[in-house]
């Protein structure tokens, strides 16, 4: 049940919205990796207000806690090898754009919007980035997140045409070369490239549409 909640939260892009439902079902909030689970004894909004005023100690605490939440967020949405970079990239963006947070409004949608923006950035970057095969130890290090990530990506990939999702799985997630993928799928090399490009573009637009719908 807990993993189902995690996966649904990942698809919706606003996991904390499910916080009350998780509590109602007597699930452990930590399992569901909601922001609320990390905000046990601190209020991120207050920490950010202090950071905007230049309080380094509270800012450090905020970054540590948000970093932990971001790791869970991206673990459900990206291949494990990309999670660390996405977290760092997002922390940098939060730092650069901290002046855009308005303390009169809740901080969670602000954080989630930045996290989603960087997620879309990563999906776009997958089009051009060289793909490395995932090593065994990456999968072992964070098995739970890997499974959740696979689930979330799988849900997204199902929205694509089979030819597109198949080549994205093989090249971008399993690390096969374009040539190997062409041989395995029977698609020409140029078709594999086109299908990856179009598939990732469609994934990006699906994520953006979800954001608009919310």
């Amino acid at each position: 049940m807990g993993s189902q909640v995690t996966i649904l939260a990942g698809i919706s892009g606003a996991p904390w919205l499910l916080a009350s439902r998780v509590v109602a079902r007597n699930l452990n909030p930590c399992d569901a990796r909601l922001p609320g689970a990390y905000m046990v004894d601190s209020d991120w909004s207050a920490l950010m207000q202090a950071a905007q005023a230049g309080n380094a100690e509270r800012y450090h605490r905020l970054l540590v806690e948000v970093g932990a939440w971001l790791r869970g967020y991206y673990a459900r949405r990206l291949p494990p090898a990309m999670v660390a970079d996405a977290v760092q990239d997002t922390l940098l963006a939060i730092h650069e754009k901290r002046h855009t947070y308005d303390p009169s409004r809740p901080i969670e949608p602000w954080l989630a919007a930045i996290a989603r923006y960087k997620w879309i950035d990563r999906l776009r970057a997958m089009k051009s980035a060289p793909t490395e095969a995932l090593t065994e130890d990456i999968a072992i290090a964070d098995h739970g997140d890997g499974v959740a990530s696979a689930w979330s990506l799988e849900r997204l990939l199902r929205e694509l045409k089979p030819a597109q999702s198949e080549v994205i799985r093989l090249v971008k997630l399993q690390g096969l070369s374009i040539e190997e993928t062409a041989a395995r799928t029977g698609q020409s090399i140029s078709l594999v490239k086109v299908n990856i490009h179009r598939g990732l573009r469609r994934l990006t637009s699906i994520v953006q549409r979800q954001s608009d719908a919310e």
Binding site: Q52, Y59, H99, T100
Partner: peptide
């Protein structure tokens, strides 16, 4: 990275 960001922290004027 966190140390770098924290040491770079300056008060900001909110948008």
């Amino acid at each position: 990275l966190l140390e770098r960001l924290v040491s770079d922290l300056k008060p900001v004027r909110r948008r």
